[in-house]
Amino acid sequence: MSLVSRHLEANGIPTVVFGTAKDIVEHCGVARYVFVDFPLGNSCGRSFDPAHQHQVLELGLQLLETAVAPRTTVQTPDVWSDDDTWKQLIFTDEQPFLSGEALENWLAAKQRYRGQKKAGTR
């Protein structure tokens, strides 16, 4: 996502990136970034809460209007829940990121990619 954003910016199209993984986006480096400190899956706000989604979108629109330099990040002021338990077990043995069918699909996709790369079609 960030790589595509960078290419667009380099070629004259302004962008705003919304996202929950602050370190990954900022590590890559984008022009404008709205950081939403929610779980992966909620990059544009709270589910079934149009008012909140509008607040998040509006932050992005204002960022487009006001940012004067790249790597400008704004953070939405909200927290996902009263405590941070959702953050604590991400990517642990107790709570692997992918499991079951999702894990199998990921491994299959990876295998397929390796095969394509070997065959020179990627």
């Binding site: 909620n42 959702w86 990921w106």
Partner: peptide, 21 residues
Amino acid sequence: EHYDQHATTLDDVNVYYPVER
């Protein structure tokens, strides 16, 4: 499938593809 399946769902499209907003 690469989202936090322990904390949320992808049932509301607008939270990752804000087309209605």
